[in-house]
Write a protein that binds this DNA or RNA. Structure first.
Lengths: 166, 166
DNA sequence: TATTGTTATACTCTATAACTATA
DNA sequence: TATAGTTATAGAGTATAACAATA
């Protein structure tokens, strides 16, 4: 099932083993599949999957300011403005004043936004499971856990690996 | 370590547990980190990480025609034309005639392209490991394996999950 | 008639720069 | 002076449509 780790005579530069270990290809392929699967579920939600993520964060009271939200989602603050404009127009979130800093805006879900997120949650979960259908249930949980650990860790320190940049 | 699965009184709609299980956020975050880490390694390679993937495929003799390559990489065939134009200009690949179909082009690496891919392989692997640094070595292998299994499986059948679309 | 590849064009997404208002 | 947010503009990346050559 795994690509061979030992060099073969017809593969002197290790291309073959590199194929199966290409993290970039696998990540890109899975994210593309995710977008396809989730796209229809999120079709009528402003911002799509990202709009859902904002609603979820805001639902936990963890959204914070627009800048914090932009950092969490990995987009520029200007993108966040457009995104929140759309969501506010749709009545899903509201911009509240932050006590103590009149520049910043606190992002909070409206009751309608909460309801929408709760409605989508189940359908999203199903779409996600379809993406992971080639894993057995136990492996799906394991995969989710590992992926989440990687995602949380990427903002942390990036220690030099031994044997790199010799 | 895991988000709570049981409903809590201050989280009636399950937002909190949904946070840690959001596959889309985790995938997006990890892919973004991957691009940041790998970007500098692939800076001078036409097509970046995608150019590397093409070289790797072609190095194994698995690249096939431009259309097959485009499908594997998940891009439009027109994008593939531009991409291969750049790589051909840089002397990394060449378009060969396919015996039996004079419309199609077989993509093959030049010796220079092979050497470039081999040179980048080690540095790429190091960059990838930095992205995965929050996992222990054993978990990194496990994660790579699971991710690859998902990626390979996404093109297969998408069976209906029980409990979905009721 | 359908398919492979190319070219020209248009669109989408995102970032950069300049601005206002606060700190 | 620096920061949060907005707006206008420009850029990168991608897709759509039309085309030529071939099946």
């Amino acid at each position: 099932m795994n690509a061979a780790r030992t060099p073969r005579s017809d593969d002197p530069d290790g291309s073959a083993s590199a194929l199966g270990d290409d993290l970039g290809w696998a990540l890109g392929t899975v994210l593309r599949a995710y977008r396809n699967a989730v796209g229809e579920v999120m079709a009528d939600l402003p911002g799509g999957a990202r709009g859902y993520q904002i609603l979820t964060m805001a639902g936990c009271g963890l959204a914070g300011t627009q800048l914090a939200l932009a950092g969490h989602l990995g987009v520029d603050r200007t993108v966040m403005t457009y995104l929140l404009d759309d969501m506010e127009r749709a009545g899903l979130i509201e911009r509240r004043c932050v006590p103590g800093d009149r520049r910043a805006k606190q992002i909070a879900p409206t009751p309608c936004g909460r309801a929408k997120a709760a409605e989508l949650r189940q359908r999203l979960r199903c779409a996600e499971e379809r993406v992971l259908h080639s894993l057995e249930p136990a492996d799906r949980q394991r995969f989710r856990q590992l992926l989440r650990q990687v995602a949380i860790g990427v903002d942390g320190p990036r220690p030099q690996q031994p044997g790199c940049e010799p």
